[in-house]
């Protein structure tokens, strides 16, 4: 499979993942959204040297990936492009902050190294939590949840249409490159002389298709707002889940759980 069709099918795979069934999938989208926001806020707010405190936060994605039946591997695979970027953010810290913090035998660990690691952890954890949300919630119900939070419909509709539009554009690119390849055998990629017209065509074609698709939505009663997947009212279990998670995050953020536990055992 070439890169394009792969991109296309990965996009659809996310749809497929979100359409599966598990206790996590069944949670109310609004609860999931709120919990994810709380989680990210908690993770990001940890002080930069609080490595152990932050480490505890891995429990949430770890447990939920299990419960949702999504292998963590899938998450890292799908995020393989952004993860290195997120990790690169902290790379300069060891050079800027050289205060010794910890002595492990001969090795001195500086504050910079610790803050680099915590920064990476923050990035990775937040990405994992967001991925979990997207992989267990269809884009429609996510938008419905946003609407419940009174996010203006123009924004949610924009989000939805953009999401669909990416697919349309990828489809057009696939069709065009296939047509090109068939008439340019033995060529690797698209010759630079054709780039201009290729891009122009792509833009025109995907705009045309977007227009046609939009027309066909209008013809089927679309009036500026998706009806969205039916979002039933939130069940008590969802509220309990949200409160419990938010409480746990707060606890983990305020109480140094790792050292408390350590203290229990070491005495």
């Amino acid at each position: 499979m070439d890169k394009l069709s792969q991109a296309q099918s990965e996009l659809r795979e996310m749809d497929a993942l979100a359409a599966e069934d598990s206790p996590v999938h069944r949670l109310h989208p609004l609860c999931k959204l709120l919990v994810t926001v709380c989680y990210i806020a908690a993770v990001v707010s940890f002080p930069k040297y609080d490595f152990t405190g932050l480490a505890v936060m891995v429990l949430y994605p770890a447990v939920l990936f299990q419960a949702a039946g999504i292998p963590v591997r899938t998450c890292f695979y799908k995020l393989r492009i952004v993860l290195p970027l997120v990790c690169a953010v902290g790379l300069v810290n060891p050079f800027l902050d050289r205060t010794p913090m910890l002595q492990l035998g001969m090795v001195t660990i500086t504050g910079g190294v610790i803050s680099m690691v915590t920064l990476m952890m923050k990035g990775v954890f937040s990405l994992m939590a967001s991925f979990l949300l997207i992989a267990t919630t269809t884009i429609d119900s996510l938008c419905a949840a946003l609407r419940k939070l009174h996010v203006p419909s123009i924004l949610t509709t924009l989000l939805l249409l953009t999401y669909r539009y990416i697919g349309v554009m990828l489809e057009e690119v696939t069709i065009m490159t296939e047509a090109y390849k068939l008439r340019a055998p033995g060529q690797k990629g698209i010759h630079i002389s054709a780039w201009g017209s290729f891009l122009g065509q792509l833009l025109l074609r995907s705009m045309d298709r977007a227009q046609e698709l939009f027309g066909s939505m209008l013809l089927r009663g679309f009036q500026g707002e998706f009806f969205y997947a039916d979002v039933p009212p939130c069940k008590p279990s969802g509220i309990v889940y949200t409160i419990a998670c938010a409480g746990a995050f707060l606890l983990a953020r305020l109480v140094p759980i790792a050292s408390v536990l350590g203290g229990l055992f070491v005495g």
Partner: peptide, 15 residues
């Protein structure tokens, strides 16, 4: 009115 388009690719937009 229900309209079946000449090009079905443009008709189907949901997953």
């Amino acid at each position: 009115i229900g309209f079946v388009l000449q090009d079905s690719d443009n008709q189907m937009f949901m997953p």
